[in-house]
Structures are given as C-alpha cells and as structure tokens.
Design a binder for these strands. Structure first.
Lengths: 183, 183
DNA sequence: AGCGAGGGAGAACGAGCGTTCTCCCTTGGC
DNA sequence: GCCAAGGGAGAACGCTCGTTCTCCCTCGCT
C-alpha cells in the first residue's frame, strides 16, 4: 500500500472515530483496527497521536469550508447566499452521524491541554467568521452583521450538537433574516 | 473535619480544577491535593469520579443560574431584563478564570462516553432556554424570540471561550436588541 | 537463489490514573 | 487507661494506552 493511500485511510478512520467518539476515548490501536494501517506505519506517518489529531482537524477544516462554499455558490442573490449558510447548517445537522461541531468538541476536550489544537480551533473559527464577513460585505450590508450571524451559527451548531436535533438551524435562519432586514 | 465541610471543599477543588483544566486531565489525586480531603474520604463522598463530576456540574448549574437571575432581577423593564442577560454574560466572560461554558466543554469531553453527563448538559441548557422563554413571555414578545436569543447567547459563550475575549457578549446584545425591535 | 529493506502482527514497555488496601494515629466512650 | 471506630498518608493494584521493539514474512534486485 502506497504511503499516500495509507495516509488517507488512516485519516479516514481517525476522522470517523475521533469525531464520533471523541479524541481521548479512541486509541491508536482503534485507528489501526479501523484503517488497516499498522501501528508501525501510523507512527511513520504521524510521529505522535497529537499530530494525527492535527491532521484530522486540518483536513476536516478544508472539506467543511469547501462544502459550505460550494453550497453557497449555488445561490446568486447576495442575501440569499447569506441565508444559504443556515440552510446548509440544517442539512449538516440532519446527517445521521452528526455529533456537533468537531472543533468545539475538540476544544472542550483538548483546548486546555494542547496549545496546537486550541490554535487550530481558533483558526477554523476565524476563517468561518471571515467567510461570513465576506458574504456580508458582498451584500453591501453593515460590517457588524458578520459577527452577529457568526454568533447565530455557532449557537445553532452547539445547540444541534447537544440536543441532537436540527431545528436550531431554522431558528438561526429566521433570526438572520430579521437581522438582514433590521440592519 | 465535618462530612458536609469535606464535601464542600472537595467540590470547590473539583470545580476549580475541572473547569480550569478539563475533567480528564485532572486526577482524583489532584483533587485530594487541592482540597485537603483524603482519597478515602473522597471515595466515601463520591463513590466514583463520574459522580464527583456530576456533583460539580450540578452545583455549578444552581450557582450559575442563580447568579444570572439575581443580576436580571435588578432590572425592572421587561426588555431591559432580556438585555441584562447579555450584560451579565459580558461580565462573566471578563472574569480572569473564564474558560468558556463548563457544560459545552464537558459535553465535548464526555458527551460521547458518559450518558449521565450528557443528560446533565442537556438539562442545564434546557433550563437556560426556558428561563429566556420566561423573560420573553413576561415582556409579551413572540415566543419564537426565546430560541433566537438562546442561540445568540450560546454562540457568544462558545466564541468567548475559544477566542478568550469578551466582545461577543456586546455583539450578541446588539443583535438581541435588533431582534426585540424587529419581532 | 540469495539478500537486504520495508512492512505487518502483536508483544512489550512505561506512564498515568481510578480505585482499594495497609498501616498507623487519633479520639470519644466506658 | 483501654478499646473500637474512623480517618489520614500513601503504597499497591489493575487497567488503559501511547509508543517502541521483536520476529518474521515478502518482495524487488542482482
């Protein structure tokens, strides 16, 4: 098995396990079992578990933001694009393996002990925030709206994760719609 | 040392350690060292670590909601009371040992492995949500507003925790003010 | 065919930690 | 003063798990 293939398989398994059960309750041996990549190979690719965690968050960040942007691109009107963010959140929340925001969960688990993970969470949230800012700017709306939409989206993610329901996306969308008009 | 005193000291130490460093990175021996309550006594009071965690979250829940309600009570106008929630969040975020929402953090850390902790997080969030609903109802505002304010507050807590800044409370307050007028 | 590099399976090592146990001291009741 | 009960200090136990090591097999090259 090629090095690149082994890396992808390891990350696939790590993502499913870390996201589904939390980082700390998943052992490297679990990743080996789920990926078919031997421990020796795993440690060649990722010299320590923390680096596997970082790679997991990094790859997921790229995919998550990519999927969001792709969904938003399908809408033309600037204000529609903003509301599409919340529609996409609703679709995400409804996926069967949805277990909340991977970065918020990772922050709760490792934020106090791993400075690198904490930094990655901050980077992901900052990128999402800046993306919202860019949508707000493109719509010619006041800059303060970006932060407000961000808070609604974060609140919806947390709530959907804890309550295991998707309804918070629609609530957030409605609040966003009102703020678009009020601003 | 009296049983009740030992229990309070143990919970004081557990709260400071669990909240500050996360549950999993704090050992029972750390709690013993910080509280001065011997391991034997700790295990008499809390037969397992999970029960200490539950007691920590339970006591903190009562105090947190008590402090919030007390702050809100100081305001007379129904709409002022709603906005006071966000002012109080801002004060909380600014406290030197603030490290995000204890329940969101605990959920990220233990939600996938401890059903009892997960249930306690849901109960705490439900109680907060119902408190907001009651403020909205008392102000004669549409019921849908309660959920929107809840999402803003949750988003502010998460954001303040991750970015280690208190600004999100003011952003959420402003969004709430607009929603009060728009609704 | 022979050989050496790379890799797989899984044992082994070592640390951390939840939990229990041992030993000893204190103290309150007779 | 004596004894049983309770408690403190900390060692001990057992398990998990991150990380490394051993042993053996395979395979490409000469």
């Amino acid at each position: 098995m090629d090095r690149a293939v082994a890396r992808e398989r390891a990350l696939d398994a790590a993502e499913e396990l870390f996201y589904g059960r939390g980082v700390q309750s998943v052992g490297m041996d679990d990743v080996r079992g789920a990926s078919g990549v031997s421990l020796k190979r795993l440690y060649q690719l990722f010299p320590a578990k923390e680096q596997l965690v970082e790679a997991y968050l990094e790859r997921r960040d790229a995919r998550w933001r990519g999927r969001l942007a792709e969904y938003v691109e399908r809408h033309g009107e600037p204000e529609e694009r903003i509301l599409a963010v919340f529609d996409w959140l609703g679709e995400w929340f409804g996926e069967p393996d949805f277990r909340g925001c991977a970065w918020i969960n990772a922050y709760g688990e490792l934020g106090a002990t791993s400075a690198r993970v904490a930094a990655q969470v901050r980077a992901h949230k900052r990128a999402f925030r800046e993306y919202l800012d860019s949508l707000v700017g493109a719509a010619g709306l006041p800059a303060a709206l970006g932060g407000q939409l961000f808070l609604l989206a974060e609140g919806a993610m947390v709530t959907a994760g804890v309550t295991r329901s998707a309804g918070s996306a629609a609530e957030a969308r409605e609040a966003a719609r009102l703020l678009l008009r009020a601003g």
